[in-house]
């Protein structure tokens, strides 16, 4: 296990390093003069040169990338702005803060959205799938599968405003969605996220319903299930203890991958509901032409995805003894 984890972690670091190179050089090709953006209005060429030097923009592209990578490991000094600690992702011109601090301010909203949303789609999806498998061919099965198809084909940017119009504007059941830190006010934190959670889960749950349904049906025709039934075990016991367990391993895989996706920023959901998370931050950094912030957000969320891919592979080995990792 340890060997597997170290090997995968090293692989992930190599990928991240290549990503830094690729994205940094790509972003550098933008002719946005960061020094100009950071210089007060009517700034003289001398001042501009100083700002440029402080930001390290007078060095060659290659040296800048090296500095950036160095900053990731040992931190970097940013002139008057103080010292940026170890995982230094640069300095955000539009926020006048270190990129890592901006990300950390915005990330809790994304975590809250991702965790609640993923619980929703896992519970709804798996439940619908199990009932569909149990009542195979029934009206419920048909309705559940059509509903899943519909959910998979619709778009968050369509459903989100519709849901707000219905539940917030017309029925007044909920307040306008938004993120409040859980530690500050647990109740409004949850009520503010209910709609985003449910809407986010719509595009994900259909996959679980279909997978769980077909996996359960497949499991129930396996020999060991028939043997268990022949031994006289109750239907319910066989169902929960054997069939469900066999169907779980693939579901955990998909779940882990989806969790990585939502944790790396559900851009459209965040923008639709006005939640200030990682995705919203990415959009804002692009409009503000804040390249350092753009780059930082991108790398941060790529790292989130990579970590989750490793976790998923490790979990797969634990859940399914037939899979040997290493």
């Amino acid at each position: 296990m340890l060997r597997f984890l170290t090997r995968r972690a090293l692989g992930a670091i190599v990928i991240l390093f290549l990503l830094v190179l690729l994205t940094y050089l790509a972003v550098m090709s933008l002719p946005v003069d960061q020094a100009m953006l950071n210089c007060p209005k009517g700034c003289s060429p001398q001042q501009l040169a100083i700002v440029r030097h402080n930001m390290g923009l007078d060095k060659s592209n290659f040296e800048q990338v090296l500095d950036y990578v160095k900053g990731l490991f040992v931190g970097a000094s940013h002139g008057a702005d103080g010292f940026c600690n170890a995982p230094c992702l640069g300095y955000s011109q539009s926020r006048h803060q270190f990129v890592i601090d901006v990300i950390m301010d915005n990330y809790p909203a994304t975590i809250m959205l991702a965790l609640g949303g993923s619980v929703c789609f896992l519970v709804i999806g798996v439940t619908l799938g199990m009932v569909s498998a149990w009542k195979q061919g029934s009206l419920f099965d048909t309705i559940a599968s059509s509903f899943s198809q519909l959910g998979q084909s619709t778009q968050i940017f369509f459903v989100a405003p519709l849901a707000m119009a219905l539940f917030v504007t017309n029925l007044h059941w909920l307040d306008k969605p938004g993120y409040t830190p859980f530690t500050e006010d647990p109740i409004s934190s949850i009520t503010g996220m209910i709609l985003p959670w449910l809407v986010l889960s719509i595009i994900f749950w259909s996959n679980y319903t279909r997978q769980v349904r077909s996996l359960m049906i497949e499991q129930l025709s396996e020999d060991h299930i028939r043997a268990a039934r022949a031994k006289g075990m109750s239907n319910r016991y066989v169902w929960w203890r054997y069939a469900l367990r066999g169907a779980m391993a693939p579901i955990v895989t998909i779940f882990g991958l989806d969790l990585g996706v939502v944790l790396s920023g559900a851009v459209i959901t965040e923008v639709s509901f006005g939640i200030h998370g990682l995705g919203m931050l990415a959009v804002k950094s692009v409009t503000a032409q804040d390249t350092q912030l753009e780059l930082g957000v991108l790398l941060f969320s790529a790292a989130a995805i990579l970590v989750f891919n490793i976790v998923v592979d490790a979990a797969y080995g634990l859940l399914d003894p037939r899979v040997r990792i290493g």
Binding site: G265, A282, L298
Partner: peptide, 18 residues
């Protein structure tokens, strides 16, 4: 693999201006 590790929406937003 490296491209798959990129969050697709975020990458698209960031790279579109480029």
């Amino acid at each position: 693999d490296m491209l798959l590790a990129l969050p697709s929406q975020l990458t698209a937003i960031a790279f579109f201006p480029i």
